[in-house]
Nucleic acid binder design. Structure first.
Lengths: 184, 184
DNA sequence: CAGGCCATGTAAAAGGTTACATGATTCG
DNA sequence: CGAATCATGTAACCTTTTACATGGCCTG
């Protein structure tokens, strides 16, 4: 429901070709709305069809040739509207919480390694966000755009912190349970 | 990828009919893996086909008749394996963070009301979780199952707290930006 | 016996994932 | 000129969402 909006945002930040967009969906925008090149090309086609974006004129419009897109007024209007739209948060759907609940029924065998693996992944992601924060948002800057983008990044940072804390708790809990096996 | 596992977990906790499962996916299990009755019926069919669950024998196997399912050994084995499986966390895909980023480009008009609405929703969800915590997990209990399920619930609680904090920050930031409009 | 709810489904469309295809450019 | 890489796509499939369909049971 929001991939077109993610693309419009990315293109307003900087007109790009499909592949450039794909790369930015592997970092930047993609930290909050992930996508693949297949989806992106499909959506670029749709957005062009519907008059929200257009391909910048090029001499050689053929397969394998780079095509740059820019946002048209209709696209900007659509995005502006979406920012204020009424749209409920999606219900949580998290496989790891679910697995923990399954473990409560069928046992925790093998779970610890997986929790530790996830913990390491989230620590790495946190480090990445923090390094971006250092590079892009030094204390003195405060242009409007920067403040909002920094806020988004802080959301990512605190989300990772949440997982790190929860996983740490979970591992502690698991250690206690395994210390007195089979029904205390 | 995990709906079948969610259903297996729910059925192990208590054998149920499709509609009973649907109700439990509106609370309980559904707090961490949401689903609708259409998906649930389809998946029950598949799980029965593949020999992971079976319908309890009934006199009147007809449309409109209640059908209860229970988990078979193969289903339990599948779930046990999944608990320890290697499965990476899904990349974040959050519309509100994305909208904030869009707002950095097209402006924040109308955003405040929406943030406040989300804040209220998350506060309500937090209250719901906390009331469940009071009812289901009083301090003295510590059976293995309860400890793990409590851990899952605390995950939900801290997730809501994260959103409440972030939204509070966001509203503060917005107020500051609006206090000195158009490029300060 | 009408209306509402219980209960189980079907169908279609949209969104997302995975695998594969194809032309253009560059570099050794 | 062969291989790698850039760049754009197609196709098939699976999951999720939304809308609708159907029959049974209960209650006034």
């Amino acid at each position: 429901m929001s991939l077109p909006h993610a693309i419009l945002t990315a293109l307003l930040e900087k007109p790009s070709s499909g592949l450039e967009l794909t790369r930015r969906f592997d970092r930047s925008i993609g930290y909050f709305w992930s996508s693949t090149h297949q989806q992106i090309y499909r959506e670029l086609g749709r957005l062009e069809q519907s008059g929200h974006i257009r391909a910048l004129p090029s001499e050689v419009p053929a397969r394998g040739q780079k095509k740059e897109y820019e946002v048209l007024p209709a696209g900007r209007a659509e995005l502006t509207e979406w920012v204020a739209a009424r749209e409920d948060p999606k219900p949580v759907r998290d496989a790891l919480l679910l697995r923990m609940r399954a473990a409560a029924v069928v046992g925790t065998a093998g779970l610890r390694a997986e929790l530790e693996r996830h913990l390491a992944l989230h620590r790495r992601q946190l480090e990445e966000y923090r390094s971006i924060e250092e590079r892009h948002f030094p204390p003195e800057r405060d242009a409007e755009e920067d403040r909002l983008r920094h806020l988004v990044l802080r959301g990512g940072i605190d989300m990772e912190r949440f997982w790190i804390e929860w996983l740490t708790q979970a591992l502690k809990e698991l250690a206690e349970l395994e210390a007195r096996p089979a029904g205390a």
